[in-house]
Structure formats: structure tokens, C-alpha cells
């Protein structure tokens, strides 16, 4: 992305996103195997991480939790929702819903509940019901998960505006539940090392630390940090 006029806020409305312009990832994994740093695998750096951090982060990559909180039906709908929010339409995918399910199963809240909202677990279940309700009633689809990507994106666009209504949505503050669910989705997606490969984030940094953060001589990139590709 050498041309910032291609960023979503700046390009003409309706113009396509850029992932297909991105280089194919060559070292390790990114979601859908594209990114801006094709030769960067943060998992090559694990020897430089402290033991406790290494265990926590590698567990995320190696042990995907099973779906235990959601029913199979809810999971099918919500997996399609997570894929739409994170634009993951082919493998390899970060298994976002598995991490959301684990968080809800363990009752790991973020510290608050809006007075006009149910608890987080109930809110997620109502979203599953609500997406099916809207997909079938208003978009005449067989199901949310079975609908074409463009239909799912149309539904989510109305969800993002807080304007889905009827059925299960009446039990929710629609704008707030969009914010709640997208927050949980991003917590899962952007805590995963595959996403760090895609965006060129340095990952855990103890005990090594950093020296190259803007001085005239060292610049902004450590020797081990990735070089950004020119698409």
C-alpha cells in the first residue's frame, strides 16, 4: 500500500479492497496467506521470548479450543458472522469463534454490562438468532451461513448501523451488541500470531526489548524485524 489514497476512508466509495494486490505470504502463516510482510514469521522469534509468555502465545496457535458454549446451530451462524467481520472467506482462517466460545464458557467478562443489555453469553446467542431471523425474513436466504458473501455483508452493514430489527433484535440494543461482538472477535483475531505476521507486529518483546525506534542511526526497524513488501 504505497498509495494511501487506496485506504478505505480515501478511495472512491464502492471501490474494491486490496487483498488481492498483496504478495503471497512465504514464511509461516497469515490468515488467507496474504499480508504486507511476506517473509516475516513471528514464530521464528520464540527463542527470544520469556518462558511464561511463550507458553501462553504458543498455546493459542497449537490448541484450538472446541466449541462447547454454543450449539452446533448457533456456531454455524456465528462462524459465518465472524468470517464476515474479519473478511476470512478461505483457509487458512484464524478460528475466531473457538476463542469467543472459550471466553464465554469460562465466563471471562470484560468488566461491564450495559443496563439495557443481557449478559454477554445471552447477547451472543441472541445475535445468532437475530442473524438467522433477518437473513430468512428480510433477505429471503435459506440461512445466514448459507447466504452468499455479498448478502451476509449487506446484512452486517445494516447491523453495523444498528438498524436490524424485529424478532430477537427487540431484546437487544443493536448498536451495542454489534460493538460487543466485534470487540470479542478482534480480541481473538488480533491476539493470534498469524495476524501479527500479516500486519508486521513485533509480538512479545521480553526480555529482548527494542533499540530501533526512531533514532537517526538505528531507524525504526530492528535487524530481525520484517521488511515491508512493495505491492
Amino acid at each position: 500500500m504505497q498509495d494511501p489514497s487506496r485506504l478505505p476512508n480515501l478511495r472512491p466509495k464502492g471501490d474494491n479492497a486490496d487483498p488481492e494486490d498483496l504478495p503471497r505470504h512465504r514464511n509461516g502463516i497469515t490468515p488467507q496467506m496474504h499480508g504486507r510482510f511476506p517473509d516475516y514469521n513471528v514464530l521464528d522469534e520464540t527463542d527470544h521470548w520469556d518462558e511464561v509468555t511463550r507458553e501462553v502465545v504458543l498455546d493459542r496457535v497449537e490448541n484450538t479450543p472446541g466449541i462447547r458454549f454454543f450449539t452446533a446451530e448457533e456456531a454455524a451462524t456465528l462462524k459465518a458472522y465472524c468470517d464476515t467481520i474479519t473478511h476470512q472467506h478461505r483457509e487458512p482462517r484464524i478460528p475466531v469463534l473457538s476463542f469467543v466460545d472459550e471466553k464465554l464458557l469460562k465466563g471471562q467478562g470484560d468488566g461491564y454490562q450495559y443496563a439495557d443489555m443481557p449478559d454477554d453469553g445471552t447477547a451472543w446467542r441472541l445475535v445468532a438468532q437475530g442473524l438467522e431471523y433477518s437473513a430468512q425474513r428480510e433477505w429471503r436466504a435459506s440461512s445466514f451461513a448459507g447466504a452468499p458473501i455479498s448478502t451476509r455483508e449487506d446484512i452486517v452493514a445494516v447491523f453495523a448501523d444498528g438498524k436490524l430489527q424485529g424478532g430477537p433484535w427487540e431484546q437487544l440494543n443493536v448498536s451495542r451488541v454489534f460493538k460487543l461482538t466485534t470487540k470479542h472477535i478482534c480480541q481473538a483475531f488480533y491476539s493470534h500470531p498469524w495476524a501479527w505476521n500479516e500486519i508486521g507486529f513485533g509480538g512479545p518483546a521480553y526480555p529482548r526489548g527494542y533499540a530501533a525506534f526512531g533514532s537517526d542511526h538505528l531507524g525504526d526497524r530492528e535487524q530481525w524485524e520484517p521488511i515491508q513488501a512493495t505491492p
Binding site: 487483498p19 473478511h87 500486519i199 507486529f201
Partner: peptide, 8 residues
């Protein structure tokens, strides 16, 4: 979202 994230 993915685009702005990649631009981090």
C-alpha cells in the same frame, strides 16, 4: 478492518 490493521 483488515486493511487498516495491515497498515498498523
Amino acid at each position: 478492518l483488515r486493511e487498516y490493521m495491515r497498515d498498523y
